[in-house]
C-alpha cells in the first residue's frame, strides 16, 4: 500500500459531517485491494476486516471533518488539508498498519472509518450492538509518541429566558442580564468544584449568546458546554446547575468521561512500541471528547486513542500533518498490532 498516496487522497476528498459517502467508497475500495474484506454498513461507516477469529481488535477512526476546505498541498514534508490531523491521518495510519499483517494468528482485526464523529457520533453508536471487541484503538491525534488514555465528558445545554418588553429605565434586570447572571453563577459553581488541573476541573464554555426582540417580547438564548472531569457525578452536576439562576434549561446531550488504565495490555503495548520507534512515550489526557467516550463507556475492555498529529491544529485553518510523524505512527501501530496478535489471549 502506498501510505502517502492513501493519506493524500483521503485528505483531498472533502468529507464534512453528513457528506462522507465519497470517502467511504474510496476507503472500502482501497481496503478491498489491500487484503481486507470490506463493506459500507447501514449508516455509512467504512468497515475493513483482516483475519478471522473469536478475539476481535477494533480500530475506529472517523471519516468526517469539521467544515472548511483547506487547499491540499505538501510543503517541506508537511501535508496541509482539512482532516489531515482530525482525523484522516490517524485513520490512514490504522489502515496502513493493518494492511501489512501477514498472519493474524486467529484474531480478527477490524478497521472502521465511522461517520458523524464531529456530530452526534451516529457512526460509533451504530457499532455498539454489532461487535464484541477485546480491545479498542481510537484514531485521534495523540502525537506519534504519545498515547491518549483519557477524555473529559461533556454536558451540552441550552438556556432560554423570555419576558415581556419593559422600558429600559426599569430597575428590573433584562432577559439578557439574567442570562449573564446565570452564566456568572455557573462559572462560580464550576470553579468551586473538583480539582485544579484542566483535566480534573469542571469547565464551562459559552458557545453562543443570542437575543431577539420582536417589539413586544425579548428572548435570550445561550448554548453552553460543560466539560466533566472523571471525578464528577454527572447527575449531581446537572442537579446543581438546574438550581442556578432563572430561566429554562434544556439538556441537549451528555457524554460521560473516560480514563483508561495505564496497566492494560493495550496501553503497555503502545508505550513499548513508541520506545521501539525511538520515541519517549507520554500519556495524554484530553480536554475534549471523542468516540472513545462513546465506545469506552459501553464496552469494559482496554481502550486508548492514538494517531499522528498535533491536536491543537484540530478544526483550525492551519490543519497540517508532518509526514515523518505519519510514518512513525504507522510503525508504532504495526508494532502494537503484532504484539497483540502474539498474545495467546487478549485479556
Amino acid at each position: 500500500m502506498d501510505e502517502l498516496e492513501l493519506l493524500k487522497t483521503m485528505v483531498s476528498i472533502y468529507s464534512p459531517t453528513n457528506d462522507e459517502g465519497q470517502l467511504a467508497d474510496y476507503l472500502v475500495q482501497t481496503m478491498n485491494e489491500n487484503g481486507f474484506r470490506s463493506h459500507i454498513d447501514e449508516v455509512g461507516n467504512a468497515v475493513g476486516i483482516m483475519g478471522e477469529g473469536q478475539e476481535e481488535i477494533l480500530l475506529v477512526g472517523h471519516l468526517d471533518t469539521v467544515p472548511g476546505e483547506i487547499a491540499v498541498r505538501v510543503e517541506d514534508g508537511v501535508l496541509h488539508g482539512r482532516g489531515s490531523v482530525d482525523a484522516k491521518g490517524p485513520l490512514a495510519a490504522m489502515v496502513c498498519a493493518a494492511s501489512g499483517l501477514e498472519n493474524t494468528a486467529g484474531k480478527r482485526i477490524t478497521v472502521i472509518g465511522v461517520v458523524d464523529e464531529e456530530g452526534d457520533s451516529r457512526g460509533a453508536r451504530n457499532l455498539l450492538d454489532k461487535y464484541n471487541p477485546r480491545c479498542i484503538i481510537i484514531g485521534e491525534p495523540s502525537g506519534w509518541d504519545s498515547v491518549a488514555i483519557g477524555y473529559k465528558g461533556c454536558l451540552r445545554l441550552r438556556y432560554g429566558m423570555e419576558e415581556v418588553n419593559k422600558h429600559t429605565g426599569t430597575p428590573d434586570p433584562s432577559p439578557a442580564e439574567m442570562g449573564v447572571d446565570f452564566w456568572n453563577e455557573l462559572n462560580d459553581y464550576c470553579s468551586s468544584e473538583f480539582g485544579d488541573s484542566a483535566f480534573d476541573s469542571l469547565t464551562p464554555r459559552l458557545v453562543s449568546f443570542n437575543t431577539e426582540n420582536d417589539g413586544l417580547r425579548t428572548r435570550v438564548e445561550m448554548q453552553i458546554d460543560v466539560r466533566i472531569p472523571p471525578a464528577a457525578n454527572t447527575e449531581e452536576v446537572k442537579a446543581s446547575i438546574e438550581q442556578l439562576g432563572s430561566g429554562d434549561l434544556h439538556w441537549v446531550s451528555e457524554e460521560a468521561p473516560i480514563v483508561s488504565s495505564k496497566n492494560s495490555f493495550l496501553t503497555r503495548a503502545f508505550v513499548s512500541a513508541i520506545r521501539e520507534a525511538d520515541g519517549s512515550p507520554t500519556y495524554k489526557k484530553k480536554l475534549g471528547t471523542s468516540d472513545m467516550n462513546v465506545l469506552g463507556n459501553h464496552w469494559d475492555v482496554p481502550i486508548v486513542a492514538y494517531g499522528p498529529g498535533d491536536s491543537k491544529l484540530d478544526h483550525t485553518p492551519d490543519e497540517r500533518l508532518s509526514l515523518d510523524d505519519y510514518s512513525a505512527s504507522i510503525r508504532v501501530l504495526r508494532s502494537v498490532l503484532s504484539s497483540l496478535i502474539e498474545r495467546e489471549k487478549l485479556d
Binding site: 491525534p141 519517549s280 500519556y283 495524554k284 489526557k285 484530553k286 491543537k312
Partner: peptide, 11 residues
C-alpha cells in the same frame, strides 16, 4: 520513572 502525563485540549 513512568512516562509523564500531559494535558491536551483537543479531541
Amino acid at each position: 520513572l513512568a512516562p509523564q502525563e500531559e494535558e491536551d485540549w483537543g479531541e
